[in-house]
Simulated assay, not measured.
Amino acid sequence: MNQPNLCEPVVFRVSPLIRITLLSLYVALTLPLPFLAEITAASIPAFAIAAGLPVGFVALYGALSERVEISETEIQLTYPRWVPKFFRRGWSLPWDDIQALKPRTTGQGGLVYYFLSSSGEAYLLPMRVAGFARLVRLVQQKTGLDTRDVVPLAQPWMYGILLVLTGILLIVDIGAIAMALSLAR
């Protein structure tokens, strides 16, 4: 197997399927809200809801803009400069500081993995990146840790199903918006 030359950092971004699915789901869940607020005379004005939706979209887009960079000396999680540090904070961990890769069960019964540093701090292994298998191979190569059992939390087919269901929800949204507009006349 060819050993990658890590003079240049290897960059892994969030999978496009995951990014498109989650951004589409946000739109599908929030798009009808201003229209529904208008016809139900909600206590929050429709224009305030409509003004807040792009802010939420940009925040979600920022959260989905994380990058994992692997170099000869370290692994790091970064975000674009436009993402405020208080919103999403990255991390950096030298390879020689990684002592273990520990699995933890999520509240929903899934399995995530944390890097444990020599100081005892835990860093979540990013699992939504495109090329996850390659990322795990590079982690094993650089740390010597056994990563054979490390698999992504969610498989691509799960996001595919969610994307199809989101498309159906968007179709329902169009109907709900059309109805709201006809009632508002």
Results as ranks from 00 to 15, higher is better:
I49T: 04
E74L: 12
L77E: 00
P103F: 11
T40W: 12
L181A: 09
L17H: 05
Y113R: 10
P34Q: 06
L93K: 05
Y159K: 06
Y123T: 05
A28Y: 04
A37Y: 15
W91H: 08
S117N: 06
R134M: 02
T147Y: 07
K102F: 04
D173S: 14
L135Q: 15
L60T: 01
G62K: 07
L111K: 15
D146R: 14
V172Q: 03
F57M: 06
P9I: 09
A50R: 07
L145C: 09
F132I: 09
A28E: 01
A184S: 10
R81A: 11
I70S: 00
E66L: 13
V151M: 09
T40V: 04
E8Y: 10
V10P: 01
R128I: 04
A28T: 03
L181F: 06
S119K: 13
S65W: 06
Q76F: 01
R104S: 12
F86M: 11
R137S: 13
R128S: 10
N2S: 13
Y26A: 05
R67S: 09
L124M: 14
W95R: 10
R81G: 08
S118W: 01
F57G: 02
V83N: 03
A176L: 15
N2E: 13
F86I: 13
L23G: 03
I44Y: 02
I49W: 03
G167R: 09
I20C: 02
P32W: 09
V164L: 15
D146P: 04
V129C: 10
Q3E: 13
A28H: 04
D96K: 13
V136C: 13
R67Y: 03
G90P: 07
G120R: 06
L93S: 08
D149Y: 13
T166H: 03
L181T: 07
L29M: 15
R137W: 08
L145I: 11
I174M: 10
S43Y: 05
L101W: 08
G175E: 08
P80S: 05
L124Y: 08
Y159V: 04
I171T: 13
F132D: 00
V139P: 03
P34N: 05
P9D: 05
Y79N: 00
R81W: 11
V10F: 08
D149I: 10
I49G: 04
P54I: 01
V139W: 06
V129M: 12
F115M: 11
R89Q: 15
R13H: 11
A63Y: 14
I18E: 01
V164H: 00
L153R: 14
E38L: 15
I20A: 02
R67Q: 14
A63N: 11
P34C: 03
A122D: 04
A178K: 09
P4S: 06
I168W: 15
P9N: 07
L53Q: 06
E8V: 14
A178M: 14
S118D: 10
M1H: 11
G52R: 05
T73K: 07
P4Y: 03
R148T: 11
I161K: 06
A50I: 02
P16L: 06
L77M: 12
G107C: 00
L60H: 02
G52S: 12
T143K: 09
C7H: 10
W91K: 07
I168K: 07
G109T: 09
I75L: 14
P80G: 01
F115T: 01
R89H: 13
Y79T: 00
I44S: 03
